[in-house]
Design a protein around this nucleic acid. Structure first.
Lengths: 354, 354
DNA sequence: GCTAGTCTCTGTATCGATACAGACTGGATC
DNA sequence: GATCCAGTCTGTATCGATACAGAGACTAGC
């Protein structure tokens, strides 16, 4: 039987309240009594107030949750997510708060349960595909949250940090269009949940499952619409998972016909790197002159010479945590739009004359 | 006022117990009543049982803690730590458990308090410098833990996963000694807590603060002792932090004299990469022919051509979490030693003839 | 018709603490 | 000498659930 606060109180001959105060409100008792109590606690092997009981009574926990789609290991596999977490971690640390990473089971019912059961004071919702259900649960619990994906139906008091996905995507696509590319493929992770790797027929951008994906695809489409390439002429490729192999699988066989795309615009650097992997491994030796762009500008992108869109990853995490931990008084300040920049490297070039 | 379980019970006209069962033990009531209860809960906006209250009553939380030295952002900055976390995360996910990352404040008193207050069912102690105090707190709380650093005084029932640090270090050092190097420097992070970047006088390996560092330095020393180089002849360099800049600062000015070391053995890849950075940036242009070795074999090491010791990072994390979540019946199985391998690349070579 | 056994559901005790109002001291103030 | 106040400590109510023993109702079996 582990000793409780009551046991310490009995040992010293004071009330439970006083022992509690010895730990949590030292100004409420004399220094000598406090020492005496802490000594007795040490002797009894009392490890301090039970965190769970304390949380129940106080009404807060002292930790914030971070929500990810799909596998928790994704959070450590995607370099962008890692930088984001580093930002959240730094802010949490400064605030003396812990970080709870909550894995979401594949079935929505189970996933809801996971969000309901998380002992946290609030959530950073990093990237939950079709995340409405998660936000519903969080709202029902009365917990604050910060989202990193812009949502059309966001309430005015809901906090957000992110980028203008659509404008940023339009920028990189305009660069590709400016190089003369007209036959292009757009590649994204889980465009339609559960769809296999490869081309997909979508009647429009609105069919994409994830709001971030939707924004990026829409931006790509905008830029090509401006040069007269309609949505129906664009090839949409699905990668089942944000990984290099998934991207390589998605573009398998894509570059073979005479009307093959001359450029691939990926919705993340990891996917773009996977396309470069696939191109590098094509039989025949030389790399086909296909232009490839990414999104995020993770460290690996620079080494691979990938043209991409830079967004501040760590800052995104830091601000997300700060918006959660010190909510700004002004509601407008709870909506932060970060800057992005087009980074042109070697992976894009003019259309080859066939 | 948020609705409680009692409110739902009142609305339906059943007892609190029955509502609780509707959530946690569906076999204890009829399907129709259960549906009725869940419907009522939805209507009232009841988000399911309060996680904290549930944890208090049930006696467990459903999450495991991970303990790191120093900044929490370190966990996301060191690629080895990231792989380790990925392993822990994967295992936690399979087990339906969350992961709590607990930042430790610099002052020990505060750090103890942080460990006391963490609402978890057990700890993976990744790397806490001079970690005894943390283990004391964990033991006092009666929580299980898995350590990744071998300790001399480990109890027989204490779980551990790691490598034979000393033997692995001896291996890479023997390779360097075999190439003819005799004037060498050993570089490690926070050899003595708080010491500045640069050379340090240590009377012996035992002065190193962290058990892992101690093991690696001892292994390096073993190999050189075998070829007649005594401890006093080795230069020990301190890096204040496991980062490339810290390592670069530690070797500043090191290669200038006529008796400069011809090899640097680093206790981690990140430090070794920092030494390579420093060498690459030396005025004069050409890289001096200094051999450099790392430890861990993180992804960046391959790209940099770094000779190093490979250890399975993700597996270490996975096994740590599994030892915590499904303790083996056999106590001996709770002590796992992972294999290591010397990986020779271009960063090491024979001693140049001066 | 009676005993057993199975399904459902209820009531009470309990998990381990903190909040808050108030009681008691002893000294300063007028 | 009465009043006030600051400094300490206590007692009771409460945070929001789950465990467990047991009470009724109902079907089976003999």
């Amino acid at each position: 039987m582990k000793p409780t606060l009551q046991a310490v109180a009995d040992a010293v001959g004071v009330s439970r309240s006083t022992v509690s105060n010895a730990y949590s409100r030292p100004d409420q008792l004399s220094a000598t009594l406090r020492e005496q109590i802490l000594d007795a606690a040490r002797q009894l092997g009392y490890p301090g107030p039970n965190p769970t009981a304390r949380s129940l009574r106080r009404g807060f926990v002292g930790s914030i949750g971070v929500l990810f789609t799909s596998h928790l290991s994704y959070a450590f596999t995607d370099p962008f997510a890692v930088r984001f977490l580093a930002g959240v971690g730094g802010a949490a640390e400064r605030h003396g708060t812990s970080m709870l990473l909550v894995p979401l089971p594949p079935a929505v019912t189970d996933a809801r349960r996971a969000v309901e059961n998380a002992a946290v004071d609030g959530f950073c919702v990093y990237c939950v595909a079709d995340e409405e259900w998660a936000l519903d649960v969080i709202r029902a619990r009365g917990l604050p949250f910060v989202s990193t994906a812009a949502r059309d139906d966001a309430g005015p008091d809901e906090r957000f940090v992110g980028i203008d996905e659509r404008a940023a995507a339009r920028g990189v696509a305009a660069h590709v269009a400016g190089l003369g590319h007209r036959r292009v493929a757009l590649l994204a992770d889980s465009v339609v949940p559960g769809a296999p790797a490869g081309p997909l027929r979508l009647s429009g951008v609105h069919e994409a499952g994830h709001p971030t994906t939707r924004g990026r695809l829409a931006g790509f489409a905008d830029a090509f619409a401006e040069v007269g390439v309609e949505w129906a002429e664009l090839t949409v490729l699905n990668a089942p998972g944000n990984s290099r192999p998934a991207a390589a699988a998605a573009v398998a066989g894509l570059f073979d016909g005479p009307t093959a795309p001359t450029a691939v615009l990926a919705a993340s650097d990891v996917l773009a790197l996977g396309v470069l992997d696939a191109l590098a491994q094509r039989p025949g030796g030389t790399r086909p002159p296909v232009s490839v762009t990414g999104f995020d500008d993770v460290p690996e992108a620079a080494a691979a010479g990938l043209t991409t869109v830079r967004q501040p990853a760590e800052e995104k995490g830091r601000i997300a945590a700060e918006l959660l931990l010190d909510p700004p008084a002004d509601a407008a300040a709870g909506h932060v739009l970060l800057p992005t920049a087009l980074v042109v490297r070697d992976s894009t070039g003019p259309v080859p004359r066939s």
